[in-house]
Design a protein around this nucleic acid. Structure first.
Lengths: 63, 63
DNA sequence: ACTTTTTGTAAATTATACTTGACATTATGT
DNA sequence: ACATAATGTCAAGTATAATTTACAAAAAGT
């Protein structure tokens, strides 16, 4: 299941997947895979993504 | 850094590390390591832990 | 005191998150 | 139409989350 909340939050900040990846210190493919929803990132990466997008874990990764 | 919020939430449910591990489908050592704080669990495991303890991600894993 | 449960910790293995590099496709702009 | 940026996806490699087995040390119970 795709993570549309993440996709929307990234769009709201006008960031590309590559730019968000840079901010989080991971590869573009990793961000793409998370948005696509076909895997299971670590909590530290989720936190880095949240901070980059000014969101909390519950806002982006809770059902 | 130890995850004391997790430890407290588990205590509040009167669950041992082994019982919580069972509920989450992981090993006791994994729960121990997360409480001890020396590593980086996946988001799916964090969510399983939250559900077992009736907490949200922000309550247990957000600083 | 003794027993039992719970916790802390370690080493070796397995599963999987994440990387790099590459290419195709879709959007956006001029 | 053409160029460029952005996204989707694959395959092979590396890093590390999570497992198993095992043992020692606290904590809790009787």
């Amino acid at each position: 299941m795709k993570n549309l909340k993440l996709k929307a939050a990234r769009a709201a900040k006008d960031l590309s997947q590559a730019q968000l990846a840079e901010l989080c210190g991971v590869s573009r493919q990793t961000i793409n895979a998370i948005e696509k929803g076909d895997y299971n990132p670590t909590i530290n990466l989720c936190i880095a993504i949240c901070k980059a997008l000014d969101k909390t874990l519950d806002e982006l990764f809770w059902e």
